[in-house]
């Protein structure tokens, strides 16, 4: 049953990534250069919808709160994010979109996945550099959420705030932001004349 769900949910995610345009490095780089915000708007809307549905579903008793899995916050999350951001901008792919894009027949994405396997292997070989150091020192008590989510015992950044209601409110903010964001924040809408 779990494996069947893995196939169905994974395939749905793969289809969604491709149809939303996330398999296109051109659209990823367009987003990161703030010229084509198509994907930024889609991502903001997706986070907002998923957040509202999940937290509202929890309050209605339809969604199991225990399915949440909040990752630990530590200094390395920020540094790792910087490194990922660098590679993301250089290549136009991230792990999920790289796998999906390679599957649509993109050869640069296939090479990206190869580089990714090498990068993951390099981390496996060098993990001991970081283990137990300040890089792994927890922030805000570890796997914290912004507010206190009823039904799980994760620490809260702002204790006393209802985490599920905050999640719905923030979800609404993300949806509003997706609509409010213009199609582009930089560059000009000129017709590009081919160089030759």
């Amino acid at each position: 049953m779990t494996i069947l769900l893995a196939i169905l949910l994974g395939a749905l995610f793969g289809i969604a990534l491709d149809r939303a345009g996330a398999t296109s490095p051109n659209l990823i780089i367009g987003m990161l250069t703030l010229r084509v915000l198509h994907l930024m708007k889609a991502i903001l809307l997706a986070i907002g919808i998923a957040s509202v549905l999940m937290f509202a579903g929890q309050i209605a008793g339809l969604v199991e709160v225990g399915h949440m899995s909040v990752k630990t916050a530590y200094i390395g999350v920020f540094f790792g994010g910087l490194l990922l951001g660098l590679g993301w901008a250089v290549s136009g792919f991230c792990p999920g979109t790289g796998v999906a894009s390679a599957a649509t027949g993109r050869l640069d994405a296939l090479v990206f996945v190869g580089g990714g396997l090498a990068g993951a292997a390099a981390f496996m070989a060098t993990y001991e550099w970081f283990e137990g150091t300040w890089v792994m020192a927890k922030i805000a008590g570890g796997n914290a959420t912004l507010g206190t989510v009823p039904g799980i015992d994760n620490p809260a950044l702002i204790s006393g705030l209802r985490g599920d209601l905050l999640g719905i409110a923030l979800g609404a903010v993300f949806i509003a932001a997706a609509f409010a964001l213009p199609d582009r924040l930089s560059g000009s809408r000129v017709t590009v004349v081919p160089a030759e």
Binding site: G76, L84, F112, G115, G119, M124
Partner: peptide, 12 residues
């Protein structure tokens, strides 16, 4: 890019 992305993702 793939190397940096996955090294960074695993660090994060």
């Amino acid at each position: 890019g793939g190397f940096l992305v996955l090294y960074g993702a695993r660090l994060a």
